[in-house]
Design a protein around this nucleic acid. Structure first.
Lengths: 222, 222
DNA sequence: ACCTGAACACCGTTCAAGT
DNA sequence: ACCTGAACACCGTTCAAGT
């Protein structure tokens, strides 16, 4: 009966950058960003919170890694899209980006509020802009429409997550009665209509992009 | 020499909803959202942090009040605009909203990430939608373009605040060398060009709004 | 009515120490 | 190399007590 090795078998933590980042995202998805803490993450990982600091220099750096992970699904959407039409590429990316917001509603604000300054996000942008260049779109036009369209997607997805609390929420019920016009208009913003509204606004911008590309090509041909 | 009233004259805190909210915004503007705490705010107000709780039930409620305060400048822009052109009104509001981001860069993410569920924000929306109604724009069209345009403005302003760190930032310098296309395109996104890009994307959406309003009026006339 | 003081259950992070 | 434990300087919030 000398089986008792050392201690209650404390089940090696088995840490790695990937596992920490993966469970961090899971914890954020479950509890939300406000509630997320390295100490809770430690409990989930089966280690002390301080062990995380051997892999990531700070909570901030860990969140950057989570951003990279979230963007990877958009990155694969870009890799799969081998179209020779940059407008179609931007359309696909826009929908993939919004999908991230639906898949990870509680983590998504990270994408919208933190700067893209990591390996993965730079690689993504480099590839996207390289595609535009290959199709003869100049850098100024690329910059302009990337900014306009990504801003729109980001803001739209964020607004979907932020509200509304629904017509039956007791905290807004009184306000809805006092401001009937605001309440009536917001009736038009239910989930299924938002799909259509998002696509509409996106197409408006994509059409402007198509016009700009067309005009530049004519100018060049002259 | 019986002047010594009671204690070292502790200078009455002089608290009120307004003063607390005002100094909260000042503190956020100075230190940023992450650094903001009720305890620091207490120090600034000259009281214990717990005194704040007599005026606001929670930090969250206080931040809602800050959102209201931030939106008030957009609200006055709406009140001043007595135009009979809803498109011009939306244009003015869009620029006023972006101005808030420039005036309060560290507080602005509150506007973009928190739901509008307060007195002031409801009143604002009610007035804006009432104006649209008076000009014969139906609720569906109002909802659609309000959502599309506000999303764009919100996302655009947020992206301006999030980046870039500038070409000389040591944390991104290495990445810029490795991903030259990403770096080259981002050269086109300096401050003065962003003014023009913002206006461009906004006008694209406003033109779509004008077209929708026009089409609806023709349909109605038929 | 308005504010304080002590307390509770948390944080992120550093650092010496363990294996 | 990888992880723990104790410690530091913080948090938001509750609640009894003071004026």
């Amino acid at each position: 009966m000398t089986v008792a090795k050392k201690k209650p078998a404390k089940a090696a933590p088995d840490l790695s950058h990937e596992r920490i980042c993966e469970l961090a995202l899971e914890l954020i998805d479950k509890d939300g960003l406000e509630e997320f803490s390295t100490r809770k993450l430690g409990r989930l990982l089966g280690c002390e919170a301080m062990a995380i600091y051997w892999y990531y220099p700070s909570k901030d750096a860990l969140l950057d890694a989570v951003v990279d992970r979230l963007m990877s699904s958009v990155g694969t959407a870009l890799a799969e899209k081998q179209s020779d039409d940059w407008i179609a590429t931007m359309r696909a990316l826009a929908h993939a980006y919004r999908q991230v917001a639906h898949d990870h509603p509680k983590a998504f604000p990270l994408l919208a509020t933190r700067r893209f300054a990591s390996e993965g996000t730079f690689a993504f942008l480099d590839r996207l802009f390289e595609l535009a260049h290959e199709q003869g779109i100049d850098e100024k036009t690329t910059a302009r429409f990337y900014r306009v369209i990504s801003s729109y997607c980001s803001g739209f997805a964020l607004s979907e997550l932020a509200g509304p609390r629904g017509p039956q929420d007791p905290r807004t019920a009184a306000l809805r009665k006092r401001f009937p016009r605001a309440a009536a208009v917001s009736e038009w913003l239910d989930t299924k209509r938002l799909d259509e509204i998002f696509a509409f606004g996106l197409e408006v911008q994509l059409e402007a992009l198509a016009a700009a590309v067309h005009a530049a090509r004519r100018g060049h041909a002259r």
